[in-house]
Amino acid sequence: MQELAVPQKSLIRHTYAVTIAMLVIGQIQVAVFMQIKSLKDFLARRYFLSLIQFFVSFLSIQLYVFFFHIISGKSMWVRVVVGMWTYQVNTISIMKPAMKAPYLTLAVSFVFTYWMMFISAIYGYNARHHKRGLFVSRHNVILWSERIFVVTCFGIIVCDEMANVTIEFLTLLVYTLMSNVFVVIFAASLRRPNFYHPHDLGDFILIGQLYYLNYFALYMSIVWTLDVLLDIMEWDTSFFQFFNSTTKAPTTTHILI
């Protein structure tokens, strides 16, 4: 088997830095938007807006990847504006259904997502070290990153309108498993020889943003899958409900003599 050369460690570190920064900002936005009741009600009554957001997101990521070699040669402000537009459009497109999810699902998904990132990084390092593993080419990484994000985004939007929670749960579970497997494949593929294009300025930003899309898709699919599971189990995860139940004053019994 052809020996796998180690790519520049600095590029991999920069890629993870971009991914983590985008993921943290995306998670903060989810938590903040959940507090805006007027926005939640507005989007809940207008299902077609989610589909429009999905369509714009799909076009944005396709154009961003296709023209990245041109964008990378433009001035700094052009690269920043285009990158921020693509990032924000994709973040919002998959965020909407989680606006009614309880904080418990956000907390569990937060821990699980970063745990998977840690496992993926360890697996990628060991796979490169042993010269075997779930490696795919740069072209396939980019292609499947877009596909899995688009499928997950569209699936979550559709599942949000389903009446059968059992089918909804099973569908979301499939999306979660797909994202879960691919982030591991992505981590291993980063260490393939000649994976990065050093001649493209900021190539690690493109890879980091694609990696972010898959982790954010994983994060949101876990959030929504857990939310549906709690709905099936009929568990009340409201913080105030829990607080009231644990601090409820004991009733006074009057004894008549």
Rank of each mutant, 00 (worst) to 15 (best):
W224N: 06
I25R: 02
R132M: 14
L39M: 14
T176M: 14
K9M: 07
G155W: 09
S38F: 13
G208P: 07
T166C: 02
D236F: 09
F110A: 10
V6R: 09
L177G: 07
A217D: 01
R192A: 12
A31E: 00
E161P: 13
I70W: 12
I71L: 13
L226D: 01
V82K: 14
A31Y: 08
M22C: 15
E161L: 15
L210I: 10
S72C: 15
V158F: 10
A5I: 01
F67W: 12
D227Q: 07
I222C: 03
Y64A: 06
L4R: 00
T246Y: 07
L190H: 03
Y103L: 12
A98F: 02
M95R: 07
V151Y: 13
A217N: 13
C153H: 11
Y125E: 10
L23V: 13
L229S: 09
S93D: 05
T247R: 10
H130P: 05
H69D: 05
Q2D: 00
T251K: 09
I257Y: 06
L106Q: 03
A107F: 15
E3P: 00
I119G: 04
V228C: 10
I119Q: 11
I257F: 13
Q35N: 13
S93W: 01
G73T: 00
I156Q: 14
A188S: 15
